[in-house]
């Protein structure tokens, strides 16, 4: 009887696992089939206005890159504070928890917030707003990564640095961050992968543009927003373009993730 229950439960678990994996691979397979069949050079050399994706790739990349430039210094500094300066006081553990909560805040709410503080005062959607929204999304991830990775650096290294007579900030920059470099880089890569696939916070902050532009004061081209719009169009061809975009986005995100894993593995 006990053995029977055991068998049944293990079988059901395996079945659930198989079922889950079927769904997940179903997604990947359709994405690949639809995406690859819609791929063409044309997509990479033309902008959305000519049924291409070029401006969207570049736009999405720039938005994420600016978000990195805005979010990473603040996030890293905050992580450094939590791990190196706070001595784990009450304030630090409060911020730590708050940052984790912020990490799970709905991304669309971040979008509405940025709309209120940037888009509405300016009067129209613009690239900066999108980048700021992504930066806010990224911030808690960077904080968490920096905090965790610095925490792994042995205490002796800090003590040795201070014992040589270096001021603490130099110890942090020259020794501790170097020691944690690989981990932090991996974390930043994963954070980048996370925000580059975001749609919701861009919908009404940077919006989308059919044309190639580098002017962040205007509506800015975004691959994800374009996928959302194109996929719901009645025109079959536009839907195919959306699939191609979705495929390339996914491949890009997965490559960054694999790269992150690879770097961590190399280190070990």
């Amino acid at each position: 009887m006990r053995l029977l229950i055991n068998k049944i439960v293990l079988f059901l678990s395996t079945l659930a696992a198989v079922l889950g994996l079927i769904f997940l691979f179903w997604i990947l397979i359709t994405l690949t089939i639809k995406g690859v069949s819609a791929l063409s050079i044309h997509l990479f050399t033309n902008d959305l206005v000519n049924n291409g994706l070029r401006n969207l790739f570049i736009g999405q990349f720039i938005l994420a890159l600016i978000a990195v430039i805005l979010g990473v210094p603040i996030g890293m500094a905050a992580g450094i504070y939590l791990q190196e300066y706070s001595f784990n006081n009450k304030f630090a553990s409060f911020i730590r928890n708050l940052s984790d909560v912020m990490m799970s805040a709905p991304s669309i709410v971040i979008g509405t917030f940025v709309y209120a503080i940037v888009v509405n005062p300016v009067g129209h959607m613009n690239g900066w707003a999108g980048a700021i929204a992504l930066a806010i999304l990224m911030l808690p991830i960077v904080v968490r990564t920096t905090d965790d990775m610095l925490g792994l650096v042995p205490k002796e290294l800090r003590e040795a640095g201070v014992a040589i007579g270096a001021p603490k900030y130099k110890v942090i920059f020259n020794i501790i961050i170097k020691a944690a470099k690989v981990g932090i880089m991996t974390g930043l890569l994963l954070a980048f992968a996370r925000i580059i696939g975001e749609t919701a916070p861009l919908l009404f902050t940077s919006g989308n543009s059919q044309y190639f532009t580098l002017n962040l004061n205007q509506e800015f081209p975004s691959l994800t927003v374009a996928i959302y719009t194109l996929a719901t169009m009645p025109d079959k061809h536009l839907v195919e373009i959306a699939w191609a975009g979705a495929f390339i986005l996914t491949v890009f995100v997965l490559i960054i993730n694999l790269l992150g894993r690879y770097i961590t593995k190399e280190k070990k």
């Binding site: 912020m102 805040a105 709410v109």
Partner: peptide, 25 residues
């Protein structure tokens, strides 16, 4: 640098409160 990093940590609190306040307004 110490002040700057503490300020950055406070940013988390500021942004979260700002989201709440701005949404409410």
């Amino acid at each position: 640098f110490k002040k700057l990093s503490a300020l950055s940590a406070t940013t988390i609190l500021l942004i979260l409160s700002a989201i709440f306040v701005v949404l409410f307004i």
